[in-house]
């Protein structure tokens, strides 16, 4: 007989943190493929940069904080790095990527105590950090119909310039374009006649969002994530935009445009669902999701940034403990006390 220690329950359903993280990574694959097809290989370089920098930071920080190096294997830092890379423009200079993910891992994750203890979503904290510091570099997206090849990306990311000049390849994202045109008093019908718009969202963006939606639905059905947060985020965003759309469709974009533009699906299914920084109760998660949806809509409509997902998530993160506290259901047998 073995003398090793063991305590009940003597069974386990076999889920592991690493397994959950791997599923999230797997669910990103459809999005990644469409992204590659639409914008070219830049995303791969960004992912590689972010993941290697993140692993290095994680390893260093685990050493510094005296935690076991096997924590590296939980895979959480890789998911953080991937989500961070997907938030970036594929043109982002390498040092900005490295700076952002380092901030995410060191400040947003480890200085709060590491996995499980961070208040803010690390990927979004890192992204907001570089967005505030280097707004210009982060708002350059490949123009419609232009797919820069691998050497173009290498040149832009690592040296910051190329023979044809970055401006020839890049332009504003649909959300950014929409915002500036609306500020110029243009009407929606004339704005969306621009070729950067597709049938329901930004051209290309709508397909990418659909791919993330597909990956997200798989996460739902494989019970990796629960429905509350994604449904609430999409519902909140849809509800707000529907109200304004009904009130005046000439200056307010259709609700589906919001759902299939920018980082909506990635944010709703992959970023907002980070369990560490979200409330833990079912009702709390719904409220948290709705809050994110509302803030995203508010920033997109009235704020200074074309997309507001990162800000919305960070703002909602701050409320997560409070929401959890006030939505804790009564324990069995305590209802009447």
């Amino acid at each position: 007989m073995t003398t090793e220690y063991s305590s009940p329950p003597h069974l386990h359903d076999g889920t592991t943190v690493t397994g959950l993280m791997a599923k999230v990574g797997l669910a990103l694959v459809p999005g990644l493929l469409i992204y590659l097809w639409w914008f070219g290989s830049g995303i791969l370089i960004q992912c590689l940069l972010a993941v290697s920098a993140a692993l290095l930071c994680e390893w260093l920080l685990l050493r510094v904080t005296g935690k076991p190096a096997m924590y590296l294997k939980d895979g959480s830092v890789i998911v953080t790095a991937l989500l961070f890379a997907f938030s970036l423009s594929p043109f982002t200079p390498w040092w900005i990527t490295v700076l952002g993910i380092s901030f995410a891992v060191v400040f947003a994750k480890h200085l709060y105590g590491g996995l499980g203890y961070n208040l803010f979503n690390p990927a979004m904290a890192g992204y907001v950090f570089i967005l505030l510091c280097f707004p210009a570099q982060l708002n350059q997206w490949p123009s419609v119909g232009v797919t820069p090849d691998f050497s173009d990306y290498l040149a832009i990311i690592f040296s910051g310039h190329m023979s044809t000049g970055i401006d020839a390849l890049s332009g504003a994202s649909p959300l950014n374009h929409m915002k500036s045109q609306l500020n110029n008093m243009a009407m929606i019908p004339e704005i969306i006649s621009n070729p950067i718009y597709g049938t329901i969202g930004g051209r290309g963006w709508e397909i990418i969002n659909t791919a993330f939606l597909a990956g997200g639905l798989w996460l739902l059905f494989s019970r990796t994530i629960r429905w509350h947060i994604p449904a609430a985020v999409l519902g909140g965003l849809f509800g707000c935009s529907l109200c304004l759309y009904i009130s005046d469709s000439a200056i307010h974009v259709a609700p589906f445009f919001h759902l299939f533009s920018g980082g909506t699906m990635l944010g709703a299914f992959f970023i907002a669902t980070d369990p560490v920084t979200a409330p833990t109760t079912a009702l709390g998660r719904v409220l948290y999701g709705v809050l994110i949806g509302i803030v995203v809509f508010a920033i997109r409509t009235w704020g200074g940034y074309p997309d507001g997902f990162a800000f919305a998530v960070l703002i909602a993160n701050m409320f997560a403990p409070l929401i959890s506290h006030y939505t804790t259901p009564p324990v069995m047998g305590q209802e009447h006390l």
């Binding site: 090793e4 063991s6 592991t16 943190v17 959950l20 076991p68 096997m70 924590y71 939980d74 959480s76 590491g114 996995l115 499980g116 203890y117 629960r226 369990p275 560490v276 979200a278 833990t280 109760t281």
Partner: peptide
Amino acid sequence: PAPPALPCIRCG
């Protein structure tokens, strides 16, 4: 042997 316990990720 039980795998080493990781920190709680508050998955709920």
